[in-house]
Design a protein around this nucleic acid. Structure first.
Lengths: 357, 357
DNA sequence: CTGAAAGCGCTTACAG
DNA sequence: CTGAAAGCGCTTACAG
């Protein structure tokens, strides 16, 4: 191995390469590029120039290994594109970048125990991890996280569930209750619900809905089959649209609400004069729908940021404080909800008012 | 430092820890955990058991450093949540995972040269990189990538631009032309356009639109101010809605189209009977809008996957083949487009047909 | 202000 | 089938 000043073929210049090219020791280069004190300014400038010329870039892996400090987060999640997931990820990314951390993503493709185990095993030893535990696969992954690894979680609250790791969550249980009560106060006899495919033991939105109905002594309709996307919502909507008794629908998220909206539209059931619909999330498109969607605004970005803070604390204190942060959702009232009106009596001038069931 | 069999506090077990605990050499453990041949099966089983008990997890950084093989991609992008970006990222992630690569994300927060330089400098030395170069910041980042780093790009085609790195792209120029022609064939006198905020030298969608109009000898209206989101589209839509001469609008993406749709709705201009609208992307919600959006379907997931393949080739061949892949978009006709009708003559039975300009 | 030594967790040859 | 040696790129002490 020749230690010529020329950068070696195919491999980036190392600290040593810069050192020999600059005619100083490796240590001086290290201090110079890291902005440490006790380096002659002239030397520093010279070293930096050489480093630049050689295209030197530090190896974060080597640095982490040598120093023992982890400056990297990896996010373990089942999905990266759904609104809530993507926005939480974005919040984590912003906070991580601000702290000089690098960001890794590991996605879980199956809730199957062996698959979850494999995914967990693939996580690097030298990184902090945040798991977005909103479904079965990720909940299992969280439970399978080995001790000794710094981990924080974005989860869902459920009184029954024990908090095993420092966690953040949105209080969607009370948000669902608020939304349900809002619909009830509008005079609707009851509120139907189309759920998310959450992990069995943790369906806070469904719980909030159920409790609000219970508290008012109102009949609780069986939830339709749920999912994450508009398609699921559409399928549920087609069923709900056939039932003239359905006047208000709470949806597990805005995508589901969009599908329900479409199904109602196709069935000639006007929203909001015939049926009121509330979503969950306040996704970017919701305000632009016609009718604009009434929904529960959730601050996923802050959720992600807070979770990163938690992780960072673990990394410095050694994780002694299993703290927990709760963020408050907010009901955004737009055009998809209205006061209850008896079936068969349509408002004059309402478009698309012909029924077809 | 005591080398007791107990895992050290705060630090994950290393190969060495497992070795001493198992009473074998480090090398045997290495071979065992990596599934290499030439290890006694009984020994292997024993070592694996100890490794599991100690919660051993390999350090990818150390492995990469020692072997010289990079098994990590980092994606450099300006955004992670917009549909096209998120889906491309998803494609990269899937391909990377299938190949055993870990995935890192680095986001560019500003097109300002110093900020771009800083972002590029932060990229690890031991990783392949994919840059999603769809805007100014990322285009600059691509240009600033130091030699010696393995990089592939997701870009836009422009005949004028030189391909500096192995790249993949979607042929949105011809797709835009196809969409424009479709509208013209429907009898529309011309087609208006609301662009994306692409980097100046590379606006293939706008180019395709412009050329299709030119080829038919049709007047080219000045494009409205563009952006990435529904808000931008809404603002443009408000202006377009006031002009009775606007009968067809091509939008830079589906979010913009959604905003235009909403603006038309508020202005009482019915889509598609008064104005036809075409989007770009076929985002998940577009099929569920009312009217369902006619749009150009783009396969971002495959785009991401292909780009990863390219990167992988560079990593093995040393990047000798600056290959290029083109994926074909497809026009999906739904409900937001219709045959041209003279203004002031509204179709009977059309809802929301009152004008208000 | 500068540098030689040891070590982070692993792998690639090279010996047994 | 198993192991001792050297080295990947860096940092933390510790000496000059």
């Amino acid at each position: 191995m020749a230690t010529t000043p020329e950068p070696r073929q195919g491999r980036a210049a190392s600290l040593q390469d810069v050192a020999t090219a600059a005619g100083v020791s490796l240590m001086t280069v290290s201090r110079a590029v890291n902005g440490r004190p006790w380096v002659n300014e002239a030397t520093r400038a010279m070293v930096l120039a050489v480093a630049k010329e050689l295209g030197y870039r530090p190896s974060r892996g080597a640095r982490a290994m040598a120093s023992g400090h982890v400056e990297s987060v990896t996010v373990l999640t089942s999905n990266t594109t759904l609104y809530g997931h993507a926005t939480t990820l974005q919040g984590i990314e912003e906070a991580a970048r601000a702290s000089g951390f690098s960001l890794g993503i590991a996605v879980l493709d199956s809730p199957e125990p062996a698959a979850v185990r494999r995914a967990v095993e693939r996580i690097d030893a030298m990184t902090g991890v945040i798991v977005i535990a909103w479904d079965l696969a990720s909940t299992r992954a969280l439970a399978a996280m080995p001790v000794g690894l710094a981990v924080a979680a974005v989860t869902s609250p459920t009184r029954a569930r024990k908090v095993t790791h420092p966690s953040v969550w949105l209080d969607d249980e009370s948000a669902a209750a608020t939304a349900t009560r809002y619909l009830l106060d509008l005079g609707h006899p009851t509120v139907h619900y189309v759920p998310l495919p959450e992990a069995r033991p943790m369906r806070p939105r469904e719980l909030g809905w159920r409790r609000a109905l219970q508290a008012r002594g109102v009949a609780i309709p069986p939830p339709e089959a749920g999912g994450w996307d508009a398609h699921t919502g559409y399928n549920a909507g087609v069923i709900l649209a056939k039932d003239r008794g359905v006047s208000a629908v709470l949806c597990g998220n805005d995508d589901i609400a969009l599908g329900v909206l479409r199904a109602m539209h196709e069935a000639g059931r006007d929203v909001p004069s015939n049926v009121s619909i509330i979503g969950f999330d306040d996704a970017p498109h919701s305000a632009f729908l016609a009718p604009a969607l009434t929904t529960v605004r959730l601050d996923f970005n802050s959720l992600g940021r807070e979770c990163f803070r938690l992780l960072q604390e673990i990394l410095v204190d050694g994780g002694l404080s299993p703290a927990v942060v709760i963020s408050k959702p907010e009901l955004v009232i737009r055009e998809s909800t209205a006061r209850y009106q008896r079936p068969r009596r349509h408002k004059a001038g309402t478009p698309a008012s012909e029924s077809d069931d």
